[in-house]
């Protein structure tokens, strides 16, 4: 059995690996939660890559219905076709549109199915998928056929905690909460994304970044992906570590902070603190 050990472009912590491997081995869905920008969605892509499987992503919106993941009956086209006297109208199968789950079940090699941001949908959404995810089969009423998974796909579900998920649904999943990476893990993540970055710059940038995250009252704390973007900018602009260090004494606001702070109030808060700091120091 293939095991997930992280990939060359994704740093997986020990607990994440255990959770992924358990879900793959026991063929149960894996539910992933965590702060935005900690790599929940990327995880599915990386698992697919590491296990050599195809990835089927199903992105959930507030209007998504569970049924859409299975199949949809395009009644409106059929009505139109019947008005126009099209011969296709006699076979209802022509109007059944396959959903993502159907695709995943029918695939020859079990793919990785990502159900992204499941909490965006209606509160009943997860309940509507219980049986389908459990038994990996569903029934198409219009054509009276049962679609059964040829091989059980690896299912990864992400949630941003906007709604609570029903207990019955949770009981069927493995669960993993992606913690915000500590400094050590962050260094490994950076190494994966920008190999051979000047260690001095990295250390200063990390210090500035974690200081910023600890700032009380921030509306939106910068995430890993924002940190990586910021690093890229720092390198592109060729800003040296000494500039970053200098800020702690005099300027306080790190250069190119726009990549980290995405909110006007946060920038204001930061500037105000910098002002107080300068007067005090």
């Amino acid at each position: 059995m293939a095991r997930f050990e992280g990939t060359s472009s994704f740093v997986a912590t020990e607990d994440l690996k255990v959770a992924v491997n358990a879900a793959v081995a026991l063929q149960r869905p894996l539910l992933i939660k965590g702060e935005p920008g900690t790599g929940k969605t990327v995880l599915a892509q990386e698992v697919a890559r590491a296990l050599g499987k195809d990835l089927i992503s199903w992105h959930i919106k507030s209007t998504t219905k569970a049924q859409q993941g299975l199949y949809e009956y395009d009644a409106v086209s059929r009505l139109r076709d019947s008005q126009l006297g099209d011969a296709r109208v006699h076979d209802i199968g022509n109007y059944i549109i396959h959903g993502k789950l159907w695709d995943a079940f029918e695939a020859e090699n079990a793919p990785v199915l990502l159900i992204d941001e499941i909490d965006k949908a209606d509160i009943e959404f997860p309940n509507d998928l219980l049986l389908e995810l459990d038994r990996m089969e569903f029934f198409v009423y219009e054509t009276r056929q049962t679609i059964k998974a040829k091989q059980r796909p690896v299912i990864i579900i992400t949630s941003n905690n906007e709604k609570e998920l029903p207990d019955a649904f949770l009981r069927r999943c493995f669960f993993h909460y992606i913690k915000f990476p500590d400094r050590e893990t962050m260094e490994r993540i950076v190494e994966v994304h920008y190999p051979g970055m000047k260690s001095l710059l990295l250390r200063e940038a990390l210090t500035a970044f974690y200081e910023l995250r600890e700032l009380p009252g921030l509306k939106k704390r910068p995430s890993t992906s924002e940190f990586l973007d910021w690093l890229k900018l720092l390198v592109a602009e060729d800003i040296g570590p000494e500039v970053l260090r200098e800020k702690s004494a005099a300027k306080l606001i790190p250069p190119l902070h726009g990549a980290l702070l995405k909110n006007e109030q946060d920038v204001h808060l930061f500037e105000r603190l910098a002002f107080i700091h300068r007067r005090g120091g």
């Binding site: 020990e14 255990v18 959770a19 358990a22 879900a23 894996l30 939660k33 669960f175």
Partner: peptide, 11 residues
């Protein structure tokens, strides 16, 4: 880790 992923479903 395994016990945590199996038994806890809410951070």
């Amino acid at each position: 880790y395994l016990a945590r992923a199996t038994l806890v479903k809410d951070e």
